[in-house]
Design a protein around this nucleic acid. Sequence first.
DNA 1: AAGTGTTATTGTCAAAATGACTATAAGCTT
DNA 2: AAGCTTATAGTCATTTTGACAATAACACTT
Lengths: 224, 224
Amino acid sequence: MDGIIPNISIDCVIFGFDSELKVLLVKHADGIGKGEWALPGGWVNFDESLDSSASNILFLLTGLNNIYLEQLKAFGTVERYPDQRVVTIAYYSLIRSDKIALIPGFTASDVSWVSITNVDQLLYDHNEILQFGLKTLQKKVKQEPIGFNLLPPQFTLLQLQQIYEAVLQIELDKPNFRRKLLKTGLLKKIDSKQYNVPHRAANLYEFNRSVYLKYKEQKFVLDF
Amino acid sequence: MDGIIPNISIDCVIFGFDSELKVLLVKHADGIGKGEWALPGGWVNFDESLDSSASNILFLLTGLNNIYLEQLKAFGTVERYPDQRVVTIAYYSLIRSDKIALIPGFTASDVSWVSITNVDQLLYDHNEILQFGLKTLQKKVKQEPIGFNLLPPQFTLLQLQQIYEAVLQIELDKPNFRRKLLKTGLLKKIDSKQYNVPHRAANLYEFNRSVYLKYKEQKFVLDF
DNA sequence: AAGTGTTATTGTCAAAATGACTATAAGCTT
DNA sequence: AAGCTTATAGTCATTTTGACAATAACACTT
């Protein structure tokens, strides 16, 4: 069997972090929503799983490759899409938004990171999907360690703290954050510091990969 | 537009509690899996939302009505269903399994509660869906209050504790459980006790509805 | 070279929460 | 009345928390 399944689509909520929280949007090159901004999305092929459809669609539209996507939710009200009945399976992810090349392709004439506080009207029910994604992300970061793919291999505690602050949109106490995170054993202090910063240089840390993976499975609660 | 969408189905993971944790299964009356046990499931109509399809399918197959269903996940590997490409949207719920009449109907020749520790081979990928549902439920009960629909209006602290023990499959310390739950303000002690029990009668409690609803939205962490 | 602004890091302290128990109370049963 | 059984109150040492204070260290300015 070949071709696309006519009633199932994928949409991706890609959160980006680089000091503030952003989301990746594409401008439609043609079709129903020509010229409008939306989450990157597309159709599922008969011979392709949902997970791999999501990866491929994201790549084709934005150039992003090798992104770990997690399923968010299926959105399936009758009127969410014009003309046709379409159930969409939404995926989400959180990645670094700097230093990543975006290449609009396929049905996307433009791709762009937009600050989460700055998102206008999107196509279809995409604003709703985005909001749901943000809520889910906020819950997620309290249950699972984050940061592995969001930070350079060596980073400061402040950088890590800023991710939590951006995602949760709250402020955290620095000494307390430090104490809490260090207690998890997730971080390995390395013998090297920042340099050329106009203030006391912070120590650099690495993630302890095995602890990180353990916490992806087992209990991990950060109660901010 | 009329009829069913050929590539989208619904499956329901209905957990039941009555002293142990169970799951609701149906025996297929005909079709591909005739005679085999599976999660209650069916097709989505073109003119029906996913949520309402789920409710209707559950009702038609099992007689269960007015069950609050939450979406679990979409399962969409290519080979999960024989002959045809079918993506299924799974829903789940936790209800009391006693005192509820089950009425097999439609394509179900039988319906039954099966202890969670006792589930055999199910059709398609339904064992996988069930396991995912259990994990999700276990996370959920630590993040949101449960019990409103699982207990009679007035209940003892032990009854509530037993729900947590059944779902999480762990043992909890009675005095500490009491202390933790009472501190939430979720429970209202009422002026009435058990009677006719062969031991000291326990005080009865009610849920404080407004606190309960507040915690459905806001932060609620039970860290067992 | 001293002073300034900025962030890092250590530490303090009282309050709250936790986990593991002990002890007593109060129902029915025999 | 004795004996089960579960309820309920309370103890206590330990851990965790939240809110700060205080000092350290870096580059830049003067």
